[in-house]
Simulated assay, not measured.
Amino acid sequence: MAEREGPRLDVPRAPRRSLLPEYDPDVFGRASERIARFLGTGRFLVWMTVVIVIWIGWNIVVPDQLRFDRYPFIFLTLALSLQASYAAPLILLAQNRQDDRDRVNLEQDRSRNERSIADTEFLTREIAALRTGLGEVATRDWIRSELQELVRELEEHREREHGPEGG
């Protein structure tokens, strides 16, 4: 048999070296969720407002030599734009992770519901079988009605043979 050239399919490939840094997507995702959770709080809004007020106040009140961002506040605008450009993708990443969790929970709920429906259908069949079985069993009320019918028949028979006085 001829030897085959090329990689074997039953042997895993050696990991490739990459120029890009390696990272754990789960760790990055958890960090993005923490950041997104913080960005959606009142505490973040308060701190952001305090920083902006101090920034603007500093650059208006202090002497010219100590100002680092003059009136149109170009550096402040750049910093806020940079913060927004990172916040949006982090929030989207956190939402995607939440969607994945919701999808898994939905699938689990669906399978639980399917099992519950199957169990309910099984119990319904069992109850129907028990009712059918009980329909063939003599119950106390049925026996009582049968005995009362027999007593009536015996009384009628006795009246026919001995008359109404029973003599």
Results as ranks from 00 to 15, higher is better:
M1I: 13
A2V: 00
R4H: 00
R4V: 00
P7V: 03
P7N: 14
A14F: 07
R16I: 02
R17T: 06
S18P: 05
L20K: 11
D24R: 08
P25T: 00
P25A: 00
D26L: 07
F28A: 09
F28R: 06
E33N: 02
F44R: 08
I52H: 11
I52K: 15
V53K: 03
V53P: 03
I56L: 15
W58I: 11
W58G: 11
I60M: 13
I60E: 14
L66E: 07
F68L: 03
F68I: 03
D69C: 03
R70W: 13
Y71N: 14
Y71T: 13
P72W: 04
I74L: 14
F75C: 13
T77I: 10
Q83D: 00
Q83M: 02
S85V: 11
S85L: 13
L90G: 05
I91P: 00
L92I: 05
Q95N: 11
N96L: 15
R97S: 06
D99T: 05
D99M: 05
R103N: 09
R103Y: 11
Q108H: 06
R112V: 02
E114F: 02
S116M: 14
A118E: 11
F122M: 09
R125I: 06
T132W: 02
G133Q: 07
G135L: 06
V137H: 01
A138Y: 01
R144N: 14
R144M: 08
R144A: 11
S145Y: 07
E146G: 13
L147N: 04
L147T: 03
L150F: 06
R152L: 01
E155W: 01
E156Y: 02
H157T: 08
E159F: 05
R160M: 03
G163V: 15
G167E: 05
